[in-house]
Simulated assay, not measured.
Amino acid sequence: MTKVLVLYYSSYGHIEKMADAVAEGARSAGAEVDIRRVAETAPKEVVEAAHFKTDTAHAVIEGPDALANYDAIIVGAPTRFGRMPSQMAAFWDTTGGLWFTGKLIGKVGAAFTSTASQHGGQEMTLFSIITNLLHQGMTIVGLDYGYAAQMGVKEVVGGSPYGATTIADGDGSRQPSEADLGGARYQGKRVAELAAKLAA
């Protein structure tokens, strides 16, 4: 059975919800899926003052070597000034050993994100994640336009050909819509399907 890891960082729960949807999509394609988060690196007083969401059902990933156990890795993180946040970057900075030994070459990778506004740097953030995956030798799956719900301007909707996205609003009040979650499920399914084909 194809093994998929959904690895995420979420400050306020938006990316956590997207991670659950990505996992749901991958499972619908028959994959065995684990959801893990990276460790919080912000000081406790910052976490408390900013009211970060600290309750979650998902365990922190054991360490970078765990990545080698999967056929596909789907990475989710919010944007911080047009790039992935330091918490996720710090984790990928520990994967030099995997790069040196080529342990992730040929695996499938993907990215998803959230921003406060519609023009808050979603695509740049996706690329900041994807760049790491490409350096590791992974094959990238985006959110192709087979997922038509990302099109149109009648409502606020996330989505990008580079990965599933959602828009949180400046105060975090907007939760991922059904269209956003549908994009996450679609991308998760596509990743799992490709990983299964490559492993066959």
Results as ranks from 00 to 15, higher is better:
Val33Asp: 00
Gly97Lys: 13
Ser86Val: 14
Ala39His: 09
Val156Tyr: 08
Lys107Ile: 14
Ala68Val: 04
Pro161Gln: 14
Val47Phe: 06
Thr125Met: 05
Leu134Pro: 13
Gly137Glu: 02
Asp65Val: 13
Ser117His: 10
Ile74Val: 15
Thr95Gly: 03
Leu67Gln: 01
Arg37Met: 04
Met84Leu: 10
Gly142Pro: 12
Asp93Leu: 03
Asp55Val: 10
Thr115Tyr: 09
Gly63Leu: 02
Ser117Lys: 13
Ala50Ser: 09
Leu133Ser: 06
Glu45Val: 11
Ala116Gly: 08
Thr125Asp: 02
Glu45Thr: 12
Val33Arg: 03
Ile129Asn: 06
Leu126Pro: 09
Met124Leu: 14
Lys44Ile: 05
Tyr145Trp: 07
Met88Leu: 14
Tyr147Ala: 10
Asp65Ile: 11
Ala42Pro: 00
Ala72Met: 01
Ser86Asp: 12
Phe52Gly: 09
Phe81Leu: 05
Gly137Ser: 08
Val46Ala: 11
Ile61Gln: 05
Phe100Leu: 04
Leu67Asn: 01
His119Glu: 13
Ser117Tyr: 13
His58Ala: 08
Leu134Val: 14
Thr125Ala: 05
Thr165Pro: 03
Ala31Leu: 11
Ala29Asn: 03
Val47Pro: 05
Pro161Val: 14
Val108Ile: 15
Phe91Glu: 01
Thr125His: 05
Tyr162Gln: 00
Met151Thr: 12
Gly158Ser: 08
Gly163Gln: 06
Arg83Gly: 11
Gly97Pro: 11
Ala66Met: 08
Val156Asn: 03
Pro78Tyr: 03
Ile167Gly: 00
Met84Ser: 06
Phe127Thr: 04
Pro85His: 03
Asp144Tyr: 08
Met151Phe: 09
Ala110Phe: 15
Ile167Asp: 00
Ala29Phe: 00
Thr95Ala: 04
Ala90Trp: 04
Gly30Ile: 01
Val153Lys: 14
Ala148His: 07
Thr79Pro: 04
Thr139Leu: 15
Lys103Met: 08
Gly97Met: 11
Ile140Lys: 03
Glu62Arg: 15
Phe127Lys: 08
Pro64Leu: 05
Lys154Leu: 12
Tyr162Arg: 03
Phe81Ile: 08
Asp144Glu: 11
Pro43Ser: 09
Gln150Asp: 05
Pro64Gly: 06
Phe52His: 10
Thr131Cys: 14
Met138Thr: 03
Gly63Asn: 05
Gln122Trp: 12
Glu48Ser: 11
Phe127Gly: 00
Pro43Ala: 09
Thr56Asn: 08
Ser128His: 09
Ser128Phe: 06
Val156Ile: 15
Pro161Arg: 15
Asp144Cys: 04
Gly106Lys: 07
Phe81Asn: 06
Lys107Ser: 12
Ser128Glu: 01
Val60Pro: 00
Gly142Asp: 08
Thr115Trp: 10
Phe91Lys: 01
Ala77Lys: 05
Ala149Arg: 15
Ser114Gln: 01
His135Ile: 01
Asp55Phe: 00
Ser117Val: 09
Arg36Ile: 06
Ile140Thr: 02
Ala111Glu: 04
Ala26Ser: 10
Thr94Met: 03
Ile73Trp: 02
Gly146Phe: 06
Glu45Met: 13
Glu45Arg: 10
Pro161Trp: 14
Asp93Gly: 04
Tyr147Lys: 11
Ser28Thr: 10
Asp71Phe: 02
Ser117Cys: 02
Thr41Leu: 15
Asp34Tyr: 01
Gly121Arg: 10
His51Glu: 13
Gln150Tyr: 07
Ala39Thr: 13
Lys107Met: 12
Ala89Val: 07
Met84Phe: 05
Pro64Thr: 01
Glu123Phe: 07
Pro85Ile: 03
Asp65Leu: 14
Ile105Met: 13
Ile140Cys: 00
Ser28Arg: 10
